[in-house]
Structure formats: C-alpha cells, structure tokens
C-alpha cells in the first residue's frame, strides 16, 4: 500500500499518524495485504457468505423500561466524562 492510500485510510479511521508510523505501518500493512491476497487462490464459487453462525430465531426485546435498580446509572456515566459543564458533555467547537 502506498503512503497516500495509508494516509487516506488513516483519516477515515480518525487515526493521526506521525511520519515514523507512516513508514513502518506502510510496510506492515502491505505485508498483511499480501497475506490476504492468498485468498484469491481459494475456490469460493457458489458459496454463500457467512456473516454470522448458528443464529436461527429472532431476538428482540419487549418495549419496556428496566426495573428501577435504584442506582443512578446516568450519573455514574457522567462521572467518567473527561470534560463537562453541568450535565452537558463538552468538546471543542465544531467548525
């Protein structure tokens, strides 16, 4: 994979890479892609793709709230927020 493609892919993944990383990752990614290309030899003619195994029944949940456990989960979650103002989570402005 060339560095241009790597940088483009990194941007999609919101990964900032420094120059050293671009160098080493370009080599490692290419090595893996070469390994992936082995799949081209496999005869997959007529095979359906498997995205999940075994599941046969529908799985749904009833439209009901949880039994009130008494603890205040949302406050617990807010405690873990890096930056907040009151109950709002705060981030730099979107431009």
């Amino acid at each position: 994979m060339d560095k241009g493609e790597l940088v483009k892919t990194a941007a999609l993944a919101k990964l900032k890479l420094d120059e050293n990383e671009v160098e080493t990752l370009a080599i490692e990614v290419s090595a893996m892609l070469e390994n992936f290309s082995m799949m081209m030899e496999a005869d997959v003619e007529g095979l359906e793709p498997t995205t999940q195994t075994l599941q046969q029944e529908n799985r749904t949940r009833r439209d009901e709230g949880p039994i009130d456990s008494g603890d205040n989960l949302s406050n617990d979650l807010l405690e873990r927020v890096p930056e907040k103002e009151g109950r709002f989570i705060v981030i730099p402005n979107v431009i």
């Binding site: 109950r87 709002f88 989570i89 705060v90 981030i91 730099p92 402005n93 979107v94």
Partner: peptide, 13 residues
C-alpha cells in the same frame, strides 16, 4: 444533540 456556541459544543445523548 449538539449545541454549539462560540468556542465549544455541548452534547446531550
């Protein structure tokens, strides 16, 4: 929902 002001954005999920 995101609410923007001059220098930051506030998030309500």
């Amino acid at each position: 929902k995101m609410i923007h002001d001059g220098y930051q954005s506030r998030l309500d999920y």
